[in-house]
Amino acid sequence: MQIIGQLLAIVFVVSTMLGVGMLLSVREISSSLTDRGWLARALLANFVVLPALAFGVARLFQLDPMLTAGLMVLATAPGGPVVIKLVALAKGEPAITVGLLIIVLVLAVFSQPVLLPLLLDGVHVSAQSIVLTLIFTVLLPLLIGLVMRARLPYWATMLHNSVQGISTLCTVLICILLPAVHWQELLGIIGSHAFLAAFMFLLLACLAGWLLGGPQPGRRRVLSINCAQPNLAAALVIVSQNFTDPRVILMLLVILLSSLPILLPLCLFYARQEQAASRTAN
């Protein structure tokens, strides 16, 4: 079952990134990121603020080193592909969401292998393994999707819904399968402050994105959702290849379970705000 969970995570990342590349053209994505001030704040939030928040939360709750490792792996893996689905639920801007996602995913290929060894004192991770994982599961499918969109737009449009359907199915299965497999272990770490740490990290990440999002409500919402949804699937793949202690993957599952009661109501709230703003404008 654990192997199936890992395979689902890989299929989810690959299919989602392939679908992301097929979604919009390079011109549409680049034109949505002309606000350099907002982009700079978004990168600051993803690559500086999130790891700092995770580090601070781990110290505050004195988390077990392996639980801390899970939190730090996730905090240094920005750009969860599922953010596209969440922003769509929130009636947000798809172009700017995909543009930011592509940029942070590409930068994460180079930043995460550097940051993790610095933040995880005494914990060994393979930088080469992380780089290869991110290149083949994130960067390469994304580039294939972009090329298909540019060179074979008809097939990209035809295949996009099928690829996104696979991604959605994998998301649902991961949310059900992994907690079902590890439910006993999850119960066993209830007293370790893992859930409290996860809730605090996600709430602070969401708040940081909102504060750094700037004056435009739409972009503020996008960055808020983006910061509260790091790349869980990529983190699962990285953890499975670099750690043998089950507590690391348990922390990822804790964050997954903690994110649902935060992000789903938040996206619905943002959707109502957007609908109200549209009615007022009309």
Rank of each mutant, 00 (worst) to 15 (best):
I4V: 06
G5V: 07
L7V: 10
G19V: 04
V26Q: 03
E28T: 04
S32C: 07
L43T: 14
L44N: 08
V48P: 02
V57M: 01
L67P: 03
V73C: 08
P78R: 08
G79Y: 10
V82T: 02
I96N: 01
G99Y: 03
V104F: 05
Q112G: 04
L118F: 10
L120W: 07
G122R: 10
V123Y: 00
A127Q: 14
I130P: 10
T133W: 00
F136P: 01
V138A: 00
V138T: 09
L139Y: 11
G145T: 00
R149P: 06
R151S: 11
R151F: 07
L152P: 06
T157R: 10
L159R: 04
N161H: 15
G165F: 02
L173H: 03
C175T: 00
L187S: 15
G188K: 10
G191T: 08
L196T: 08
F199R: 09
A205V: 06
W210D: 08
G214W: 02
Q216S: 09
Q216W: 01
R219Y: 01
A235P: 03
V237R: 02
T244S: 11
T244L: 13
S259K: 08
L263D: 01
L268Q: 11
F269W: 15
Y270N: 00
R272I: 00
R272S: 12
